[in-house]
């Protein structure tokens, strides 16, 4: 499929689906599970991460000529930590309620392996334009998973989406879904479905029929 897509657009697309940071590369699990108990939290986390990712990829790719190879990881961490501090302060000033809900997990973006991974594996070698596209794609992929997980968990756990009651008063909420076990369970089910799908498509490609 990637053969027909122009290379620049592929930088974007790759992060969204084929190399999705969470479900394919299994990075950034900590925020993925911790803040997806409501769609609002998931979205805020995704936006904050996207901001840090764009900023760090932009700076890393534009400074790549000046960062000595030996201290590159430290430099990346410093760049990321700076953007995380900015994001933390922005969230606290703009949406204090969400900031309080996310708690320490905003600061924890700094140890999100997705960001350091993109800086080291992509932005440190590519042009600014491609790095920005890569950051956008990875952020979109991350947002996709976060919104999907938080939508499932909020709907089943409270019967509402974004605080709007959808399932009516007769629905008995599965409170467990908004609690920690629900996070593991939801992502686990997503991974099982994806694994089953992958198995089926490779089975078909080999002419063995559905597995």
């Amino acid at each position: 499929m990637s053969d027909q897509v122009p290379a620049t657009f592929d930088d974007f697309l790759r992060g969204v689906w084929r190399e999705n940071p969470v479900v394919v590369q299994m990075l950034g699990l900590c925020p993925t599970l911790a803040v997806t108990n409501s769609v609002a939290n998931g979205l805020a986390m995704a936006m904050a991460t996207a901001f840090v990712l764009l900023g760090s990829n932009l700076l890393v790719s534009s400074l790549k000529k000046w960062i000595p190879h030996e201290v590159r990881i430290t430099s990346y961490v410093l760049i990321i930590a700076t953007f995380v501090t900015i994001a933390d302060m922005l969230l606290e000033a703009a949406v204090p309620v969400v900031h309080k809900q996310l708690g320490p997990f905003v600061a924890l973006i700094v140890v999100n392996c997705i960001i350091l991974g993109r800086a080291e594996a992509f932005a440190s070698r590519q042009s600014v334009k491609r790095s920005l596209l890569d950051a956008l794609g990875t952020a979109a992929g991350f947002t996709l998973v976060l919104v999907l997980l938080s939508a499932v968990r909020e709907l089943l756990g409270t019967g509402a989406l974004l605080g709007i009651d959808l399932l009516g008063p007769r629905f008995e909420p599965w409170v467990i879904m908004v609690l920690p076990p629900g996070g593991f369970l939801t992502l686990g089910v997503v991974m099982l479905v994806l694994g089953w799908h992958a198995k089926r498509s490779t089975g078909r490609a080999n002419g063995e029929g559905a597995a």
């Binding site: 076990p181 369970l185 694994g195 089953w196 198995k199």
Partner: peptide, 18 residues
């Protein structure tokens, strides 16, 4: 075979968390 790997680990983690 489809359940082997990460998905299953997550389900186990879910039970442990429970």
């Amino acid at each position: 075979s489809a359940a082997q790997g990460f998905g299953l680990s997550l389900i186990i983690a879910s039970c442990l968390a429970l």
